[in-house]
């Protein structure tokens, strides 16, 4: 546990010292959402139907963009190898790193998303659902993404490949999340979708750290 805390603290401190890097994915999130009204139409009726999907796709892309930071810098300066040879369990350390990534890249989306949803005329009844789906979904994005980063961290140009590996795995989440927000906007119950997203979160929490640890061991072997 102390190792978990140490890694978490270190990662958070590192991002805090380099704040602009932290802001970039959020700026990207805002910019992508701004593009849609400009590209499609400023009509509120059109934007209202698009809002759940647009917000979620933008969140997904923003998190994808920041994924590489989970392991990349550590791989380059060699501290990732130190984590691998340390006596502590690697999946736990991976969890700490993913948690740090989520706190930096996922949590701010929860705060920003309602503001942007207002810009897209999302009905106010759906706001709470939007935040809930992001709260349940963004950790899954980070967890699944970590596997992809673990597999591609040794490659010099892993960026495009990473999105090819990870995006198909994101699809179920995207379907349930935007479906839930959509249903909430039309006044329907969303318990079912939220329950499934919770189940996905638990599944990802329990399985992905092991897959990521195995991927890292292969990448650094």
């Amino acid at each position: 546990m102390s190792a978990f805390n140490a890694v978490l603290k270190r990662d958070l401190l590192l991002t805090y010292r380099n704040r602009s890097e932290m802001a970039n994915p959020l700026l990207f999130f805002v910019l992508v959402i701004t593009l849609f009204p400009l590209a499609i139409s400023p009509e509120s009726s059109v934007l209202k139907t698009l809002a759940p999907g647009v917000v979620w796709v933008a969140a997904l892309l923003a998190s994808l963009l920041s994924l590489d930071t989970i392991f990349r810098t550590d791989f380059e300066d060699g501290s990732l190898e130190q984590l691998l040879v340390s006596p502590h369990s690697l999946p736990a350390l991976v969890m700490a790193k993913v948690l740090a990534h989520w706190l930096v890249a996922g949590l701010p989306l929860l705060v920003l998303a309602p503001l942007l949803a207002v810009l897209l005329y999302l009905p106010s009844e759906a706001m709470l659902t939007l935040v809930l789906t992001l709260a349940l979904g963004t950790p899954v994005l980070s967890l699944i993404g970590a596997i992809g980063v673990g597999l591609t961290v040794g490659l010099r140009k892993g960026g495009m490949l990473l999105s090819l590996l990870v995006l198909p795995l994101y699809i179920p989440l995207l379907i349930f999340a935007s479906g839930a927000v959509d249903a909430a906007a039309s006044g329907l119950a969303v318990n079912g979708q939220l329950a499934i997203m919770g189940a996905l979160l638990i599944l990802a929490l329990t399985l992905t750290p092991f897959a990521t640890a195995a991927a890292l061991r292969i990448s650094l072997s």
Binding site: I147, L151, L165, P168, L169, I171, P172, I175, F176, I196, L200, L203, L207, A211, A214, A215, I218
Partner: peptide
């Protein structure tokens, strides 16, 4: 192989979600 295994866990989820 790891990616294929991750995919196998995901295939039923993807199928039912769709």
């Amino acid at each position: 192989a790891i990616l294929a295994l991750v995919g196998v866990v995901n295939i039923p989820i993807i199928h039912y979600s769709v």
